[in-house]
C-alpha cells in the first residue's frame, strides 16, 4: 500500500501541473447532467437572442390597435398585447436586452468586485480598512438615487445602464472575495508562494482568486437574475430600456398588471425568465463543483 499511495500522490502532482484548472473543470462539468442541461439551454437562448433580427416573426414595435390583445393563435403564437403587438417578437427582442444587461452588468461587478475585494483582503491593515469603508459608504447610498443621478448627468443610454447596475452590484462581491482571501492567505500554499518570491499580483491571480472561485461563481449566478429585475425596475421608472423596446423584466411587470385579463402576457415572459434563471443556477452549481481546486481528484 505505501508504494501505491506514493505513486498516486506523484501522479496527482503531475496532473495538477499538466492539465489546467479549466480543462479539469470542463471534464467534471461534463459529468454533471443538470449543469449540462443548464449550459445547453442557456446557449440555445443566447443563440436565439443573437439571431433574433433574422427570425423574429414581426418587428417588436409593430402595433395594431384594431387587433388589440388576443390570446395565442396561429398568427401570433404567444398572443398579442393591448396595442396589438406580437408577444413572441417582443419576447425575443426583450431577451436580447435582458441577457445583455444581465451578463454585462454582472461582468462589470465581477471584474471590479473580485479585484477590489482580493486586494483589500490580501494587503489587509490600513489599506483594507480604507477600502472597505469606501464600500460601506457606497452601500449606504440609496441605489435608486445613485442611478438616477448617473442617468440625469449622463443621459439615458443602455451602456450606462450596464455600468450603473454593475457599479452597485460589485459591493457585495467585493466583501465576499475579501473574506475568502483573508482566510485563504493564512494557508500554507500561499506562504509557500510568498516564500518562493512570487509577486503579489501573481499570488492574487494565480493562487488566491482561483481558490475563492466557488463562492464567486455562486454569487455571480445570483447577481444575474438580480440585475435583470433591477433593469425592469429602472425601466419602469423610465430610466432603463426605452419604449417601445422591451425587456423580460418589463414584459413581466406589464403582464402582471393584466394577469387576470390577459394571462398569456405574464405566463410566457415568466417562463422565459425562469428557464434562464434555472439554467444559470444549475450551471453555477455545476461550475462551483467543477472549479473547486480542493474537490477530490476522483
Amino acid at each position: 500500500m505505501p508504494s501505491a499511495a506514493t505513486s498516486e500522490i506523484v501522479e496527482g502532482i503531475v496532473i495538477e501541473e499538466g492539465a489546467s484548472l479549466w480543462g479539469d473543470a470542463l471534464r467534471r462539468l461534463a459529468k454533471n447532467r443538470l449543469a449540462l442541461f443548464g449550459l445547453i439551454t442557456l446557449s440555445a437562448i443566447a443563440f436565439v437572442a443573437l439571431i433574433t433580427p433574422a427570425i423574429a416573426p414581426y418587428p417588436y414595435d409593430a402595433q395594431d390597435l384594431e387587433y388589440g390583445a388576443q390570446s395565442p393563435n396561429a398568427e401570433h403564437w404567444l398572443g398579442t398585447d393591448r396595442l396589438g403587438r406580437d408577444l413572441l417578437s417582443r419576447l425575443m427582442y426583450g431577451g436580447r436586452i435582458s441577457l445583455m444587461v444581465g451578463f454585462a452588468a454582472t461582468a462589470v461587478s465581477l471584474l471590479v468586485g473580485v479585484l477590489y475585494g482580493a486586494a483589500a483582503g490580501y494587503f489587509g491593515g490600513r489599506l483594507d480598512s480604507f477600502m472597505m469603508r469606501i464600500v460601506d459608504i457606497m452601500y449606504a447610498l440609496p441605489f435608486t438615487i445613485f442611478v438616477i443621478i448617473l442617468m440625469v448627468f449622463f443621459g439615458k443610454n443602455i451602456i450606462l445602464l450596464f455600468l450603473a447596475i454593475g457599479a452597485v452590484e460589485w459591493l457585495t462581491m467585493a466583501r465576499i472575495v475579501r473574506g475568502q482571501v483573508r482566510s485563504l492567505k493564512e494557508k500554507e500554499f500561499v506562504e509557500a508562494a510568498v516564500a518562493m518570491g512570487l509577486p503579489s499580483h501573481t499570488i492574487l491571480t494565480r493562487h488566491l482568486i482561483p481558490n475563492a472561485l466557488g463562492p464567486i461563481i455562486v454569487y455571480a449566478t445570483l447577481t444575474i437574475p438580480n440585475v435583470m429585475l433591477l433593469e425592469a425596475f429602472l425601466s419602469f421608472l423610465g430610466l432603463g430600456v426605452q419604449a417601445p423596446m422591451s425587456s423580460w423584466g418589463l414584459l413581466i411587470r406589464e403582464g402582471q398588471e393584466q394577469m387576470e385579463e390577459f394571462p398569456w402576457l405574464l405566463i410566457y415572459p415568466s417562463i422565459a425568465l425562469s428557464l434562464t434563471l434555472f439554467s444559470l443556477n444549475f450551471l453555477g452549481d455545476g461550475l462551483r463543483d467543477a472549479l473547486d481546486p480542493r474537490a477530490s481528484k476522483d
Binding site: 414595435d61 409593430a62 423610465g238 419604449a243
Partner: peptide, 19 residues
Amino acid sequence: EAIQQMWKKSLGIDVTLSN
C-alpha cells in the same frame, strides 16, 4: 406608446417617452 408608434409609422419620426 400608442401615439409614438402612430407617428413613427405614418410620419417616420422617432419619439422617446419619459415620465
